[in-house]
């Protein structure tokens, strides 16, 4: 192992890491908000909106992210869809995780016993008060573990964006590998950095979970 390689390549790698953090943050934001909108669409209960929800889920959960971004980035120009690699990467990753987050929200709301809501309505709570006072505080705690899980998967999936030349961490490591004719140094570096990222997310998630579900711990 030649550690001096890192000395000469650290600016590229650091830039790649920065871009990965940027891509994942925006995609997570799109996923969190988009997932909520999708969930809301489904909750409306109209036939049209439920159909849109089902189609969206089938498409984005049923096909590999690799195929999705490849199709849009390289196939897009043929149907007049001209987007940069960064745009396709960020939006693609965001819409992809939104499908998963929508289901996470759904499971979160579904795991609150309906009797708790009945009691609130019986005491005179409005629909909005039930949402804010009863459902959200519990649901937010319940969705943290699957949400963290999904975020970790997303961070690792973001490596796929190197295929369409998004200048993120994996792209940087690949260019280091091809330029220096090495394998171990760049890919070991990749493994360690992705592990550090996901480890940080997992620890943060655990901390939030303890904060949010403290009431469940029995004395």
């Amino acid at each position: 192992m030649d550690l001096s390689l890192y000395v000469s390549y650290w600016p590229i790698l650091l830039k790649g890491l920065g871009f990965t953090l940027y891509v994942c943050s925006i995609a997570l934001l799109i996923g969190l908000i988009g997932g909520l909108l999708l969930y809301g669409l489904n909750r409306l209960g109209w036939r049209v909106t439920s159909f849109i929800y089902a189609v969206y889920l089938t498409v984005f959960r049923g096909t590999p992210l690799l195929v999705q971004v490849y199709l849009v980035y390289y196939g897009g120009p043929f149907v007049g869809l001209d987007m940069t690699a960064e745009q396709v990467g960020i939006i693609g990753l965001g819409l992809y995780v939104a499908a998963y987050f929508a289901e996470i929200y759904r499971s979160g709301f579904a795991s609150i016993p309906p009797g708790q809501l009945e009691a609130a309505y019986d005491l005179g709570f409005s629909r909005w008060q039930v949402l804010i006072r009863i459902q959200l505080p519990q649901m937010l705690g319940l969705i943290i573990p699957p949400g963290v899980n999904q975020t970790i998967i997303m961070i690792k999936e973001s490596a796929i964006l190197s295929i369409i030349t998004v200048p993120e961490l994996t792209t940087a490591a690949i260019s280091m590998a091809t330029q220096s004719f090495t394998v171990i140094e760049p890919y070991l570096f990749l493994a360690v950095v992705y592990w550090l990222l996901t480890f940080a997310v997992s620890k943060t998630g655990r901390w939030c979970e303890n904060k949010a579900t403290g009431y469940l711990i029995r004395t």
Partner: peptide
Amino acid sequence: TDVCMVFQQFNLWPH
């Protein structure tokens, strides 16, 4: 308003 129900499963809010 004048009617309140008590449930089999108590239905207290656990949080």
